[in-house]
Design a protein around this nucleic acid. Sequence first.
DNA 1: CCACAGGTTCTTTTT
DNA 2: GAACCTGTGG
Length: 787
Amino acid sequence: MNSFPVGPAVDAAPSPLLKNLNPEQLAAVTAAAEPALILAGAGSGKTRVLTTRIAWLLNTGQVSPGGIMAVTFTNKAAKEMLTRLSTMLPFNVRGMWIGTFHGLCNRFLRAHWKQANLPQAFQILDASDTVSAIKRVIKAMKLDEERFVPKQVGWFIAGCKEDAQRPGDVEVRDDQTKTLVEIYANYEDQCQREGVVDFAELMLRSYELLRDNAAIREHYQRRFRHLLVDEFQDTNKLQYAWLKMFAPPGVDNGQSLLAVGDDDQSIYAFRGARVGNMADFEREYRVRKVIKLEQNYRSFGHILDAANELISRNSQRLGKTLRTDAGLGDPIRVQEAPSDFAEAQWLIEEIQGLVRGGLDRQQIAILYRSNAQSRVIESALFNSGIPYRVYGGLRFFERAEVKHALAYLRLLENPNDDTSFLRVVNFPTRGIGAKTLENLQDAAKASGRSLYQSVSAMSGKGGANLLAFTNLIDSTRNLTQGMTLREIIEQVLETSGLADFYRTDKDGAERLENLDELVNAAEAFVMQEGFGKNAVGLPVDEVAESGTPGAVPDAETGEIMSPLVAFLTHASLEAGDNQAQAGQDAVQLMTVHSAKGLEFDAVFITGLEEGLFPHENAMSDHNGLEEERRLMYVAITRARQKLSLSFCQTRMLHGQTRYNVKSRFFDELPEAALKWLTPRNQGFGSGFAREYQQAWDRGSGLKGMVGAGRVEKAAWVEPPVPASMKQKVSNEHGGLRVGKGVFHTKFGEGVLLTLEGVGTDARAQVNFGRHGTKWLALSVAKLTPID
DNA sequence: CCACAGGTTCTTTTT
DNA sequence: GAACCTGTGG
């Protein structure tokens, strides 16, 4: 059964589209209309395969645009796909459903809001909105926030939703869980009352509607002939179940679900991603053959060798080895630095060298495991005047002043949105204090109504102030009737007092600029989306798409939904870029996680120390370590030409100095691909890192290593020990020194952290990296100093 | 209501 | 080290 005209089946006819594809890519692009699994290694041309396949399907008349659904995880990936497609195809790409999981859910729910039991203008809570909503529930239940940490409760709720469990479905084993489920239930009621949904709810609500409504489900199954899923290894249980609703397994109805993924790049298990979905998919859909894309078009040989060797240590793999036709290229440079400070200094020198050599700064990436590591590097870059760009800070729509403005805008559309109400009811201050709000919340709870609806019941001074606030909202709503989006926002900024507040605030200038930027963003949004669309960029004809059971056109008139609702949705779903100077030629700084999917000519992976990378919190179990290794694999495979790895003996973390051992990953890389810039084991964890550094700068230090290859035995000239450190130097025991490396027959290499006691009571604290930090009795433990 | 001091915590993160 | 929360005093 097919509601779209479909052309005759076409063989892989010669077509300019298919030129220059390798045999595996060609097989993937022209795979038959049946379930298929593509194992696409890093840099194997995955996006190209996906887009080419869509174009090929359309060009050969196998499907019409409306029959295509392509799902990604990030807005960026979705945009990339759309951009590439629009250059490949002679027609508008709008009829296809291409977007993120959440974006498509939103599109779906906007069309079926009635059946999904949502208000038409439902709003989407972002991560921080969700936490504050949960916090309110916990407060209202008078629970201990120590025991029920809002953020953790949020993880619990999201976890339940991702398992498609409503409060009634959760198995309660203990009191803690019982209360958590109660919070979950109350949170759900609260969201429903306020007409808001969180990210997980977008998925779950769509899933349930498809599951429970056969007419809708069958409609979409008939409609979508070809479904393509990117980054399949990152799907969670619910997302996979959601996909099955659109294209059920084991049903021979001519639908094709094509999953593309790389189990080796699965780095989001910690937030519910199930790599196992790939194996499940293969089994449940009876995939006849798995196509492996192993030809890498990105990196040189040494880099790929390192990646292959490293990942081969993982036990749970579908199995895949990258290969390249490019030569070996430069070896991977390895630098040991005395301190994080020195590491940053080294990065500066390297980057200056690369830039002198003609490399664009934006082709250089500095990667780290955790955000906290960026600070030292940033300050070094700043001091040396190298432009840089940090990814992953606060993003545009997450800035406080922007969220305030958005809260006012949301209240215009939906005054029952208590989250927004509370955010701005007293900002700027209107004499509405905690006590007043407490009373209001009690009244709201007692009557089961929203805060806004409960204002009229309030008396006294607080009540008067509250009434002034709701009057402000109401009058602004009236005032902005018929205005353009731009005018509405400008009006709100003025009447709310936000603009005035930041105008008088002594450091409000920047915030004011961001509010201006919000107006611009809205303007750009309207221009880009055009007015032929309603909320969330859904073409109007699509809402009213004939044959979609129960699809509800906007209001009774079929009018275009307000651009404001569309813009608010856009703001939640796409937190926006976090940088103003995006176009500038700047060095790129980011965590390894956010580097996934990107590539650079030169990559620096920094902070390769036990406890940091692999991270200590991930090392407790086997799966955690394997995920860290995949993370390292992702990091390595970002590099096209030059890759450098670095680690430090000491690092400031959480305000205190840590002595580090180099990451175990160094032992898992092929020696032949590495070039050590510093001699190995030259003295670990020196507590005098900075003094050494300064001594080095004065001319002592390591001699004769410049320009050499790997230095096995270099002359280490002991720099003079500064007087200020004399005290610590006496901190010795039988050749052992605090801050120096030691060797233990069982635990291996470590760094001596502390020496205590005398004689038989003498004890030593040693950081053995992967074996942890241990206290040892020196009368028993055989510790030998490493020179 | 607000400004400030102290205590606490601290992976990774898109939507 | 810094961000975030809570409690105190004006």
